[in-house]
């Protein structure tokens, strides 16, 4: 583990990496197809469509049909990447995800584009903040939240190789690279990536909150509080071992996510702690339907910032 210094300034839209990787995967494997719901632009699939016009199946604004069609394609030997805005994929097609994908055990990658509060000003109808809770509840469905472009690409490699039913968030909100330079692979399924070895507090974060947790660690360090940052890119199955190690070696954990607290990452961590090693913890998430505002404004509004994470950490170690 190498200590992370300050977070890089350059930021990326993970959909760009997603699009490039999808084309590369499709070049190498004729089984790969994209299925979408009039979301060619918002899923960044224009280049894929130009390169593979027959392998882009746009069913129109029809999410239940979209996921069912993907199941039929999987039945016919294809590997569908279903690309749709997170709120509509996870909300409108929940039963299809359960019955047609997970219960049917098809190798389908459900790609929730622009998750969390990425569509800030469009309001709560367009926020995908319940998706992790809903998807976690479905058996035989892996839930991934890559935190940066490198993780997004590596998770896609794993998705194709595994043949698993997968729900994966693909972020629109620009994020810095959080993958330490010395990692051989940016994403390892089922493993939490730990940055730093601080023993005062563990900052457990996912997706957009990972870079904020790294910044929080810098803030705390300046105050003499040592933190480690746990980047949880596989929400389910959860890497309990790394969570429990952090619980044993620190005074407490702060869990931060761009989603509701009920049933999300925090709930998964809390269950793991309660059953194995009760520890002090604080949980940060989206605590209600959001007011009008940009993604950044809303993250600030709900305290999902480096400052918010550092404040919670101080309460644990104080």
């Amino acid at each position: 583990m190498n200590a992370h210094s300050s977070v890089a300034n350059e930021t990326f839209d993970c959909r760009v990496a997603f699009s490039e990787k999808l084309i590369a995967l499709a070049e190498a494997d004729p089984r790969i197809v994209a299925v979408c719901n009039d979301s060619v632009g918002s899923s960044n699939l224009n280049a894929f469509r130009d390169r593979f016009p027959d392998r882009l199946i746009n069913v129109g604004i029809a999410e239940q049909n979209m996921v069912g069609v993907a199941a039929g394609l999987a039945n016919g030997g294809f590997i569908p990447f279903v690309c749709a805005a997170g709120p509509f994929l996870s909300g409108r097609a929940t039963e299809q995800v359960k019955a047609d994908v997970a219960y049917s055990n098809y190798g389908i990658v459900l790609c929730a584009m622009s998750p969390g509060m990425a569509y800030g000003e469009l309001g709560p109808t367009h926020h995908s903040i319940e998706d992790i809770s809903w998807m976690r509840a479905i058996d035989n469905l892996d839930v991934l939240v890559p935190a940066d472009p490198e993780q997004t690409k590596a998770a896609m490699d794993w998705a194709v190789a595994s043949g698993r039913p997968i729900y994966m968030r693909v972020g629109r909100h620009k994020v810095p690279s959080v993958t330490p330079a010395d990692r051989d692979v940016a994403f390892t399924f089922g493993k939490i990536d730990v940055t730093g070895d601080g023993n005062d507090v563990a900052l457990v974060a996912t997706g957009t909150l990972v870079s904020r947790a790294l910044e929080a660690a810098d803030i705390l360090k300046a105050e003499g509080i040592s933190a480690r940052v746990l980047n949880v890119s596989t929400i389910k199955p959860l890497d309990a071992e790394t969570i429990l190690k952090a619980a044993r070696e620190t005074k407490g954990l702060v869990v931060a996510e761009e989603g509701v607290l009920e049933g999300g990452l925090g709930a998964a961590v809390a269950t793991t702690l309660a059953e194995n090693h009760p520890a002090k913890a604080r949980f940060l998430g989206v605590t209600g339907f959001a007011p009008t505002g940009s993604n950044d404004f809303l993250l600030e509004h709900f305290g999902l910032t480096a400052k918010g994470i550092a404040d919670a950490a101080r309460k644990l170690v104080g």
């Binding site: 069912g68 039929g72 019955a99």
Partner: peptide, 24 residues
Amino acid sequence: EANTGPLGHGLPIGVGSAIASKLS
């Protein structure tokens, strides 16, 4: 061929199968 039960699932799956038939 399909884990049905909740209604309205078979036809979308069938459409996907029919597309796969032509694509392959």
